[in-house]
Design a binder for these strands. Structure first.
Length: 794
RNA sequence: GCCGAUGUGGUGAAACUGGUAAACACGCGCGACUCAAAAUCGCGUGCCUCUGGCUUGUGGGUUCAAGUCCCACCAUCGGCACCA
């Protein structure tokens, strides 16, 4: 018997929920609020991926569970739609990016609805909607007004294939994060955001939030805070600062290094070395980051002929130029201590430079260091910093690996940066009343080879008047990176239609912070860090009520293809959720992806497993069909089954709360194995039958809703309360007690629970397979655990 | 090199504060139904020299008892990396 028509059932309930607005969140409800957030998708032409389905289902199960538990739940969805793939797609197919975006969003929305996700669709946002990006631009202007957005000419990471600048976070192993092309350096004026100003708070405030440890650790590593000292060296008349974490080793300095990009590099070299130095600098310039890291094993450098004076010893040490010293970290210059730094050591050996030992590693004690001799490393650091500060030769400082965020992109499909350049007034932000500054609708939006934004070619856009003095002026033509829109989107869901402010203050007070946020690990040092930064800024200017946006952050594992590789069009191993929904149903796909394994693990797809889940749902369908036909009048109550139901409710409650969906599903399977054993059905009272449907609802909302209607239960399933379980009924009357002799399993006894130790010992000793092992042995000890185990030690 | 994680059947995996390792599911085998196949249902399924013994990456340790705790090592994955 298999009349389980998933198509009919699922369409019916999806329409029902939509018509009844079943999952719209209400602002300021008396119920306690929960804000459940999952990263919104980039609406690419490829459509929804089974990976999306995994995390959206997990949070959907959780959101539905919380609603049944009586919470006012906000579970919204939107689209992060600016970015290169759409632009490239549009160029290739000769349709406008906004048109492509519109179509893609339409596809996504219908795919999401077919999964039965309980999003509040009335709050849908789209980062490319001018009503939305008006506020993205508004935030940029606030950043500018507070000195956190600035323009700087600098060597940036340039992707020659995407034809745009990249942030440091977007460069992976010297390659473009998106297209894997080797990144080049390019001198360009760029808008920068001063995220470094928030470095300490971005680390420290991690204490206030409940993120997975590995996420916290990765962010801390990325920010890369290190404490040390800045020390001033003199090279002839110039003063050059170095940063070091080991100021205690100052007596071991035997040479000095400038980065090839250091402004003094060409100035200080002696005449006879000039050609050699210039050539080296030129070579270094043409090495990409990728080449530099690949060649890192073999260090190169060139002697400048100049000498630097150690401010403590007054000793002269040779100044070298070497590209193992980076201009972008510290001051672009180092004091080299080859005895106690492996990189300096390697370099010194190659070029025959002095190596002076100043620490006795065995004793952790300073040697050959004048007034520091005999001190521990830690003590010596304190002493030397005090000394430097007294003599004004240096000071204690902190350095970060984190760099400011390169915020300009030379592309069409992004938020225009709302800035005007006026000859009289300089840089002027677009006035708030003129926002949004809309992207001009144009025919040509291909990126240029010159490194200019395509907007620079559009004279109607570029030429404008200064909002301050009215003179002729020009607009900024760069656009924002694709990370901009997602850096504040969770705020907009709270009040998506507000045109006065980005979101109403009272509403934000009610909903924030986000209680649970799920997203990919790949966003740990990108989106997650950027959005924390923006939130902190908005908090500082009193726009948002909390200093951290997300209370809890978790992460899902990837779904690989059946062959264990990543799903990819080029391998031809992708699974399209639409096909699965058509063939097996949304409830099947939902439960399958929950059952597949632990939520945070990477797991390959397995079509056989999917079929197993479908069979389970058919079993559920059969059970209720038979119940409706036969079981309804006389309910057969089975004691053991009653215990099983209570256990199942308890197990599901804790498993859903802990995101252990795989065992939650298995608990439901065990329940139905009890309910339908060997073709015999065990039916419960009507009250208990309803409880079963309520606990299935979060995982299989369509099927359970259909059955709820078929058994003629009153009210709407989605408005029921999650059933309580009876603690007393969790324990079975009969328990299995393990009998061990010397820790080895010898027998298993089925006895009344709560049996006394004495009675148990008597029964256990009588057991054939136990007495056999106890014969002629002296009893040393008896270990007894109530209702579980008895161990005779002989 | 540094930081983090993970190692359990043929497969995905389960095991709460140490207490019968392998729940649940897939796969496989046998059987029932059928002329037959599929579907469905039932039974079985860690390994071995099988009244017993062995088994959670390897080797030690703590304990009456270790997948779980401690020490050392190996392997795989993820992140960072000439960051001074």
């Amino acid at each position: 018997m298999n009349n389980y028509n998933h198509k009919q059932i699922e369409e019916k309930w999806q329409q029902y929920w939509e018509k009844n607005k079943s999952f719209e969140a209400s602002d300021f409800s008396d119920k306690e609020k929960k804000y459940i957030l999952v990263e919104f998708p980039y609406p690419s032409g490829a459509g929804l991926h089974v990976g999306h389905v995994r995390s959206y289902t997990a949070l959907d199960v959780y959101a539905r569970y919380l609603r049944l538990k009586g919470y006012n739940v906000l579970y919204p969805m939107g689209y992060d739609a600016f970015g290169l793939p759409t632009e490239n797609y549009a160029i290739k197919h000769k349709i406008h990016p906004s048109q492509a975006t519109k179509e893609n969003i339409k596809t996504f929305r219908s795919q999401l609805q077919k999964m039965g996700f309980s999003f509040d669709y009335s709050r849908e946002t789209n980062t490319t909607d001018p009503k939305y990006y008006k506020w993205t631009q508004w935030i940029f202007i606030q950043l500018y007004n507070h000195g956190l957005a600035y323009k700087k000419k600098m060597a940036i990471n340039w992707c020659p294939s995407c034809k745009t600048g990249l942030a440091n976070e977007e460069v992976v192993n010297g390659k473009c994060e998106r297209c894997k092309t080797a990144v080049e350096k390019k001198e360009k004026e760029q808008w920068m955001l001063k995220i470094t100003k928030y470095a300490d708070r971005l680390i420290n405030d991690l204490d206030k939030v409940n993120y997975l440890d590995k996420i916290k650790q990765q962010q801390i590593n990325w920010i890369g805070r290190s404490e040390g000292a800045q020390i001033d060296f003199k090279i002839e008349t110039n003063t050059v600062s170095v940063f070091t974490t080991r100021p205690d080793t100052i007596f071991g300095v035997s040479y000095f290094v400038l980065s090839p990009e250091h402004p003094l590099a060409t100035k200080i070299c002696t005449k006879d070395k000039e050609d050699e130095v210039k050539e080296y600098i030129n070579e270094a310039k043409h090495k990409s980051d990728l080449e530099r890291t690949e060649l890192q094993k073999d260090k190169t450098g060139v002697f400048t002929g100049a000498y630097a004076i150690n401010p403590i010893t007054k000793e002269e040490v040779p100044v070298w130029i070497a590209d193992y010293v980076l201009m972008s970290y510290g001051s672009g210059a180092i004091m080299a201590v080859p005895a106690h730094d492996s990189r300096d050591n390697e370099f010194a050996k190659k070029y025959n430079l002095d190596i002076k030992t100043v620490i006795d590693e065995e004793k952790d004690e300073l040697i050959n260091s004048d007034f520091l001799n005999g001190l521990s490393v830690k003590k010596a650091q304190e002493e030397i910093i005090k000394f430097l500060e007294d003599k004004k030769l240096g000071e204690k400082t902190v350095n970060y690996k984190l760099r400011d965020w390169v915020f300009s992109r030379q592309h069409y499909w992004g938020e225009p940066i709302p800035i005007i350049y006026c000859d009289n007034c300089g840089t002027v932000p677009v006035p708030e009343e003129d926002l949004p500054l809309e992207l001009p609708k144009v025919e040509k939006y291909e990126p240029t080879d010159t490194g200019e934004s395509p907007l620079a070619d559009i004279s109607e856009f570029v030429n404008t008047t200064c909002p301050k003095c009215g003179a002729k002026a020009k607009r900024e033509t760069d656009t924002m990176p694709n990370w901009a829109g997602s850096s504040w989107y969770w705020l907009r869901y709270i009040d998506p239609k507000n045109d006065k402010v980005l979101a109403d203050k009272d509403k934000m007070k009610y909903w924030l912070p986000v209680d649970l946020y799920n997203g990919g690990m790949e966003h740990t040092t990108l989106h997650l860090l950027y959005s924390r930064f923006w939130n902190k800024f908005l908090y500082d200017i009193k726009v948002v009520p909390t200093s951290e946006p997300y209370q809890k952050r978790i992460s899902h594992g990837m779904i690989l293809a059946e062959d264990g590789r990543k799903m990819s069009k080029s391998f031809g191993n992708t699974i399209n959720p639409d096909d699965v929904v058509n063939e097996h149903g949304a409830d099947t796909l939902r439960i399958y992806e929950m059952f597949i394994g632990p939520f945070s693990e990477t797991i390959p797809w397995n079509t056989n497993g999917l079929i197993g889940v479908r069979k389970f749902l058919e079993k559920v369908f059969d059970y209720f069909s038979v119940y409706i036909k036969e079981g309804k009048q006389e309910s057969i109550i089975n004691d053991k089954a009653e215990v099983v139901l209570n256990k199942t409710i308890a197990k599901l409650s804790s498993d859903i709360k802990d995101f252990k969906f795989n065992t939650a599903v298995s608990a439901l399977m065990i329940l139905f194995n009890e309910l339908k054993m060997k073709d015999k059905y065990h039916f419960f009272s009507f009250v208990d039958i309803k409880k079963i449907l309520i606990i299935i609802f979060p995982l299989a909302p369509h099927l359970s809703s259909e059955m709820w209607e078929k058994i003629e239960a009153e009210g709407r399933l989605e408005e029921q309360s999650w059933p309580a379980f009876d603690e007393k009924l969790l324990k079975e009357q009969k328990v299995k007690i393990v009998v061990q002799v010397n820790g080895k399993f010898r027998a298993s006894l089925e006895l009344e629970s709560g049996i006394s130790k004495e009675d148990l010992i008597k029964i256990a000793k009588d057991h054939d397979n136990v007495s056999k092992w106890l014969e002629d042995k002296e009893m040393k000890k008896i270990i007894y655990i109530q209702d579980k185990l008895i161990n005779f030690v002989v």
